[in-house]
Amino acid sequence: MNIATTIEQKLLSAFSPIHLDVVNESNQHNVPVGSESHFKVVIVSKNFEGERLIKRHRAINQVLANELSEHIHALALHTYTEKEWHDYYADSVPLSPKCLGGSKT
């Protein structure tokens, strides 16, 4: 199993997330093509309610301790409660630009 899938499965079972994105960002870094070294996780879970960021991150680091020590070089974490996720993204999902007619010319 690749690392991305392992991360995904471990987080799914530990946090029952409402939303989960695991993005392999290794291609943005100075590592061989196809590496699984740099990841970004966006996770929305009820478990984070009332928890400070450091506690949320520690909880994730603990679940992924093995991957962190063996495989992962960088792990960006963006952790939200349902409310934070809603407040954060409700008005800020970027809109795609309007059509300016270029497809017909």
Partner: peptide, 18 residues
């Protein structure tokens, strides 16, 4: 597990994302 780490008054605040 990672760097950077910010410490304020003897307490770990967090890494880059925090």
């Amino acid at each position: 597990p990672t760097f950077p780490q910010l410490w304020v008054e003897g307490e770990l605040i967090g890494g880059c994302d925090i």
